[in-house]
């Protein structure tokens, strides 16, 4: 009896081990190591790494590029999050209705999600390319002035925003669509019998009932707005003059172009802390206003 209980424990641990190893070695260890490293200087052949306390953080606060990149990232978040969520909801309501070729439309909306970001960026490169790109060709057809979309610091960030919205909205739509389909149809019928218009029903019933989904999507959108930087490698490399650089891309540059591991670690810690705070805030603040079934 005791032996079998003992064996039970062994089985339990054996089953947990693969996941635990992966989690420890690829999530927990790197996190701790990053935090640790952010308190040390980057070692060189002449000067080995040494403890510098908060020096890296002090340097960061004086780094103009850091602030530029943070500003960019906030604009990027402000541009992508509301737009992609609104678009996702709109598309979900649209493809949830009776619609000829509904499956096809749903698939079309979901395609951007399936495509790898690198491929997507390459497609959009054809749109944005000066003179021969699709955008400029359309402008020229209407005799409008063309421009170098990705080469102009005024437009480059918004070009990236549009691409990100296009890429993300389809993904979020799937969640909204699932939530919409979970709504019992009698609710709409009951509302119709009372004379509620579709808009009124949406505002008073559907939207509040979708709030749990909205929160989930919002958290994801916020994280993605700090996480999605693949397109920069193809389209702009953060340029011109860091006008399109985002925090994570800057971290990549610092770590793998400038080989300043410690400063990259410092920036990473800041990014992680910001994301954790935002998610926590969202859950704590919004959770109380949300009705969960």
């Amino acid at each position: 009896m005791r032996a079998s209980r003992h064996l039970h424990h062994v089985y339990g641990w054996l089953l947990l081990t693969p996941a635990a190893i992966l989690l420890l070695s690829f999530t927990h260890y790197p996190t701790v190591a990053t935090i640790w490293q952010s308190f040390f200087s980057t070692g060189t052949a002449l000067r080995p790494s040494s403890f510098v306390g908060l020096d890296n953080y002090r340097f960061m606060l004086e780094d103009e590029i850091f602030w530029k990149v943070v500003g960019n990232n906030l604009l990027f978040a402000a541009g992508t999050i509301p737009a992609s969520i609104a678009l996702a909801l709109l598309m979900a309501v649209w493809v949830n209705g009776r619609l000829p070729g509904r499956a096809l439309v749903r698939m079309a909306y979901f395609t951007p999600t399936v495509l790898p970001m690198i491929a997507v960026a390459n497609i959009w490169l054809f749109f944005y390319t000066p003179e021969i790109g699709l955008l400029d060709q359309i402008l020229r057809a209407f005799d409008l002035p063309t421009r170098n979309w990705l080469g102009d610091p005024d437009t480059v960030l918004w070009c990236i925003v549009v691409l990100a919205v296009w890429k993300e909205a389809g993904f979020f739509m799937i969640f909204y669509l699932a939530a919409l389909q979970a709504l019992p149809p009698e609710l709409e019928e009951a509302a119709r019998l009372e004379g509620a218009s579709r808009a009124y029903y949406f505002r008073r019933v559907v939207f509040p009932l979708l709030m749990p989904t909205t929160l989930f999507v919002l958290v994801n959108a916020v994280i993605n707005s700090f996480k999605l930087v693949d397109q920069l490698f193809i389209l702009t490399k953060g340029g011109p003059d860091n006008a399109s650089s985002l925090l994570l891309y800057y971290i990549y540059e610092v770590a793998f172009s400038f080989f300043d591991d410690s400063y990259a670690a410092t920036l990473t810690v800041v990014l992680l802390a910001a994301l954790a705070l935002i998610s926590l805030g969202q859950f704590l603040f919004l959770d109380r206003r949300i009705h969960y079934r």
């Binding site: 009698e186 019928e189 009951a190 119709r192 019998l193 009372e194 019933v205 009932l209 009705h291």
Partner: peptide, 18 residues
């Protein structure tokens, strides 16, 4: 439905949960 001046009780009650 709204023009008919009728009300309806559904099997599932169709109450608005929020």
């Amino acid at each position: 439905p709204a023009e008919r001046r009728i009300s309806m009780v559904f099997q599932s009650y169709a109450l608005f949960p929020h």
